[in-house]
Design a protein around this nucleic acid. Structure first.
Lengths: 206, 206
DNA sequence: TTTACCATGTAAAATGTTACATGATTAG
DNA sequence: CTAATCATGTAACATTTTACATGGTAAA
């Protein structure tokens, strides 16, 4: 249950509403490794957490704009602390770009320019993310602790590292294709044969 | 539907069984950005893909060991190719270590040694992953294409980059705590007050 | 006055994991 | 002979997103 701890964590920064939490996740979440959270999981989860006594409604304006501000209870602070104590599990990253890189040669060989487009897109997105990051780390408005600052330095450095690598890959693809580094069982040759065979078989059917 | 394309991709390397695909994902998946896949999603998905005509059963040993080997059809190759064409979406990373770093100061301040343990654990896991990686990139058995090799170089370099940063963070935590980089609205002070307040209130209840 | 933003909520669908059931083969 | 590995499958559960419904407020 990951969303639960994001909610408790964001509320540890300051009391907030469901909508407000969503904004925080939107603004900080991607870079800080929280991923994304939708309203459809925030609101039911907040209700559940309140029911379980981890958070309580601090104020609710019933008239006009109906905003419920939640705050952590003692039980909630303890729950957050307990979670922070647990050793963090190694993350499962599912990155479509990396997936495509690993299947490119058998699934779509030759088309190097298309792959360059993918890499260029990723490079741009990474650049934007870095800008967004640099903005809120220097706008003087966000609270940045010692540890949070360390995390930020790491993440900014990593975005720069990634950008350099995307550029390096693009430069490599600009050059003519080279043969595989190693192919002991002739997998790549076989793959193109299997592909041809599959298409020739399907033509027989027509 | 992410699992679908992992299955098609792995089958593009070579015909394989459900069990065999699971092994490939286990062995290569984490590093190559595929994440993990369980049998509970592989077998039903393979049936579905066969029903939809993307793959077909190439051979099935009915007697004794019942192994079904799947192979891509022309439709399957096309589907893989179409997917590879689509611009890859920027990944949503949910990393518990990063999450904990961003909530540490309000949720569990003071306890720097515990955080150092977390970082040390991650450093070790990263090191192991790098070793595993270096092994199969030099064992002479795995097929490595030009693009796959490029991806590997990137991922190995990134693991080394991460390890260095974890070490840097540990060294920082060995030093005495410093005050926040910036805290314009006094958030960190307020947080510790709110925490104290929550606990004093819960004591009144007893 | 209309667009953008603030604000909460629910139901259905998608996607996936965990846990179980079953049984063959191989290596120590 | 027994543990590990090979091999397939299902049902229940968990988690989360998507899409919808509803309505207030502020700025252009």
């Amino acid at each position: 249950m990951s969303v639960k701890h994001i909610l408790l964590g964001v509320l540890s920064w300051a009391p907030n509403s469901g909508y407000g939490i969503k904004s925080e996740v939107e603004y900080y979440g991607r870079e800080l490794g929280w991923g994304r959270v939708s309203f459809g999981s925030i609101y039911p989860q907040l209700k559940k957490l309140e029911h379980q006594g981890f958070i309580k409604t601090e104020s609710a304006e019933e008239d006009g704009r109906k905003t419920k501000i939640y705050e952590l209870t003692a039980k909630g602070w303890r729950e957050l602390s307990n979670w922070l104590e647990q050793p963090p599990v190694f993350p499962e990253v599912r990155d479509e770009l990396l997936m495509k890189l690993s299947f490119w040669d058998t699934g779509k060989p030759e088309d190097r320019e298309l792959l360059m487009d993918h890499l260029e897109l990723r490079r741009k997105e990474t650049k934007q993310m870095l800008h967004h990051f640099e903005q809120w780390s220097t706008n003087g408005y966000s609270a940045i602790s010692e540890i949070g600052g360390l995390e930020m330095d790491y993440l900014k450095d990593r975005l720069r590292f990634d950008m350099e690598w995307y550029e390096r890959m693009i430069r490599q693809l600009e050059r003519p294709p080279t043969s595989p580094r190693q192919d002991p069982r002739g997998l790549f040759k076989k793959a193109s044969q299997r592909k041809k065979h599959a298409f020739s078989e399907s033509k027989d059917m027509t």
